[in-house]
Amino acid sequence: MSRLHHENHLVSRIGWLRAAVLGANDGIVSTASLIVGVASASSESSEILVAGVAGMVAGAMSMAAGEYVSVSSQSDTEQADLARETQELATQPEAEREELARFYVNRGVEIELAERVADQLMKNNALEAHARHELGLSEITTARPVVAALTSALTFAVGAMMPLGMVLVAPSHILVMAVSIASLLFLALLGAVGARAGGANILKATVRVTFWGAFAMALTAGIGALFGSAG
């Protein structure tokens, strides 16, 4: 008696994982950079905290809106392609059958077998078959604007809370250093977790995320210090 072989492919996570990693990364980097920049120009903890909270709220809303608009545009394109494919299946079924058969022939399947496979797929669900093989669309990769928007906003807020927490616990005279070091550690952890979830190289992902986070914070700290001294 044969057993079904079930596989959990990592690509099935791509929709939410990309939005989650992007949101959390931006939350940490944007908020930490803002806090470091403001702290370099001002020593008032209340001002720094207000700026950080405002940055967190504005950033989360911006991420949600940006992701929704971007992914909605992708979804509109997918729907337009599916509508055109539906029309072609209705008006040129034989040509679409040959196109599907050619897909398998080009991948090494004998032409007779490829034609039989195309016939079976066309009878079962012609649009799904052409969407998958001709357009590269599947349930895994289909754009989901609402999911992307909510995931990005939520993870941005979670990421932003990490450097914000340091404002509450770190003494003002070491705030810049405390936020910077803690944020780099958070970024390293995020890079490792994201790489682990996506099956990527953990060291490479961690170094990449940490480097660019450090660069952003150093730049904003320098700008903050410049304006602070000028004032």
Rank of each mutant, 00 (worst) to 15 (best):
N106P: 00
V209W: 01
R18P: 03
E67N: 03
G228I: 09
S46V: 13
H9K: 12
D119N: 08
Q87K: 15
W212D: 12
L127E: 08
S73W: 04
G136P: 14
V169I: 14
A60W: 04
F227A: 06
S73M: 13
F186K: 01
Q79V: 05
R13E: 10
E96N: 07
L203D: 08
S62F: 01
N106G: 08
A114F: 01
L154T: 10
G108K: 06
A188P: 02
V105C: 10
E115W: 00
V109Y: 04
V53Y: 02
E44A: 14
A80V: 06
G194A: 05
G231K: 06
A188Y: 02
A205M: 08
A60I: 07
F103H: 15
R3L: 05
A148W: 00
A216I: 04
Q87N: 11
I28N: 00
A160P: 04
G159L: 03
A129Q: 06
I174G: 06
A157K: 01
V207T: 10
S183E: 09
V169S: 12
L137M: 14
A101I: 03
V207L: 15
S46N: 08
V53N: 03
E128I: 03
G198I: 03
A221K: 10
E115I: 03
E112G: 11
F156W: 05
E110C: 10
A19H: 13
G37R: 09
A90H: 11
L154H: 08
L189N: 09
G198L: 07
A118R: 04
I202A: 10
E67I: 02
R144K: 15
A64Q: 06
H173T: 13
A200R: 15
E44Q: 10
L175G: 10
G198N: 14
K204R: 15
L154P: 05
V29K: 06
E7C: 00
V71D: 00
V38L: 12
